[in-house]
Design a protein around this nucleic acid. Sequence first.
DNA 1: GCTTAGCACTCAGGTGCAAAGAGTGCTAAA
DNA 2: TTTAGCACTCTTTGCACCTGAGTGCTAAGC
Lengths: 356, 356
Amino acid sequence: MELTERKKKVLRSVVDLYIRTAEPVGSKLITELPDMNYSSATIRSEMADLTAMGYLEQPHTSAGRVPSAAGYRLYVDELMADYRLSLDETKSISTAIEEKMQQVDKMVEKVAKLVSQATDLPAISVASRYGGVTVSRFDLILAGAGSVILVLMLSNDEVVNKLIKLPVQLEETDLKLLSALLNATMTGLSVQEFDQSLLDRIMRSAGAGSCLVPVIMEFTTQTLERQTRTNMAVAGQMRLLGHPEYRDVDKAQRLMTTLDEEALSNLPAVMQNANGTQVLVGAENVARELKDTSVVMTKFDIGEGMQGMIGVVGPTRMDYAKVTARLSYFAESLSKMFAKPEQAQLPEAKSGKEEQ
Amino acid sequence: MELTERKKKVLRSVVDLYIRTAEPVGSKLITELPDMNYSSATIRSEMADLTAMGYLEQPHTSAGRVPSAAGYRLYVDELMADYRLSLDETKSISTAIEEKMQQVDKMVEKVAKLVSQATDLPAISVASRYGGVTVSRFDLILAGAGSVILVLMLSNDEVVNKLIKLPVQLEETDLKLLSALLNATMTGLSVQEFDQSLLDRIMRSAGAGSCLVPVIMEFTTQTLERQTRTNMAVAGQMRLLGHPEYRDVDKAQRLMTTLDEEALSNLPAVMQNANGTQVLVGAENVARELKDTSVVMTKFDIGEGMQGMIGVVGPTRMDYAKVTARLSYFAESLSKMFAKPEQAQLPEAKSGKEEQ
DNA sequence: GCTTAGCACTCAGGTGCAAAGAGTGCTAAA
DNA sequence: TTTAGCACTCTTTGCACCTGAGTGCTAAGC
């Protein structure tokens, strides 16, 4: 059977209405739409066809129609009207992002929170670095009262520090010597190259500062390891409860536990080869628990060998147009922000063409 | 009417059973308890008395009894058997805490998560500082490639840093000069004392480094302000759904929104004058939304003019004995940890006397 | 005087059934 | 090709009814 223009129009109406009401859509409801100059009987026969073709489903004989996974797929790929962000919306997203986000792990949390807020759905935010971070510079600062501040500058321009209480008294010159030694031997080395022989070598040459070396080594290793780990945050889980399909507490809970745990950590893999905004409808999902749930996600650039991803999880009935619009606006804004760290330029509101 | 020993025993049994089952407790159920050598009729008359005295309530005529707020109060204050933490429990709490917690804001989050895990309830964790943090030392490190690392050491021994990209080329000596100037003029000043005249004064003397001054000022102000803010984190909100009284999604949602927002920020005030573990039963709560919910909270010390608080929120029917035991163990462990930052000693398991 | 057995009473929750309502598929006429 | 009409299906809702749990009271027993 051929998918005529009118069939598409009916399908789109069904999905649109279903997104709004979360109730099965009947033929009569559709006839009441503006631009629908057919009787309910005509719509009925079209709907019967669409059901036969697998785009719609019927919960039971005397109920209205509900989009099937295939129906959503078609909707997302072809039918969905571009959602046009209003000035208000871009503005509130912009000001939210503008607050400076200092470190990557903090950033991940904040972004998750913002995205969740903007979409009224639980959101995840991931930042993964593809390894290779090294220390590009060591500094030791004597900070009075028997303590030293260790400052590491990393190859990705992040800076971390640690306060070390000194067991013995050390002179400024001792620290100069030690930091020079560290800079000479350890900069540019990845964490895998740290080993016992390196430690021995440094200890031998360290002189008065040798008691600091183990602490420094441990902190450095820890820091570099944390850098390669992918950061991930989940926010706004409770928002799920606002949507009728999750009034079943058990279901919501099961879904959120999945989200909290690792099951989702393989989503970034799915993301890897795809570009732009991706929509996973219901059954297309990897994780069991997400079977009747959809995921929308987008990549964004953080530069310096890093990559971010933001996504939301929600009922298959979610308002894809709105969600994808907001998500990609976020991603765009974030990418720009990381491109010019100090003065983030926000993109123009995407002026999508309004179909129909 | 007098509250006899036997009445107390009955009341305790009712609360214990209700905590376990979340169902109204009938007279017959109580007779089945070991150590209860009375007939159901006797228990019934005792329960009728307890109801008249306001310690029990009846959802409807033919239902069992449920503890009233006053009943819980009495239970918490007098009747409750000390819960004895098993070795397993102390161990899992200990190892959880042992992971080093670096910065205060990170700490707050982690603690909230741990407490929530240990009690299977939503948890809040607050760390508030009573002001007065100043910068005790400035350092500027030239980090090659036209950038400078600014390191601030604060009066509470926390260290923060920021990477600044240089608009112009600066020499090591310029930075030395500037940092000496900053140390001379700005250390020990609280954020309220930063004003235009101070900025002007520094700008005049800064020489080549003057272009850095505004950035440094802003970052310093921001940092000190963040230090005085109280950090607060909420974790495990979804756990609420596991308890039957919150199967009503709307209720759970309303409660959690309250928790997420500020309504709870006045709880620390309640905490201020009290010591030890506090239990707020139902109607005793400040916030509207918490009316049929209980809050258990404890203070702990962070030293350095700071104070922490952990608490959980849950159904009035929660297992007070278990929750208070775990909470105070946490608080104890944390206090000890901050007393000797580097090698946390964990307290012995509290060996409470087992009554009855 | 306290305790207990017995009994009548109350009320929430489950079950079965009928009516209402929503929506469908099919057919015949326009 | 579209539409009006109609019979059919299935869920939802309301209602009456029954059952079981639990109570309060009373009178008898220790």
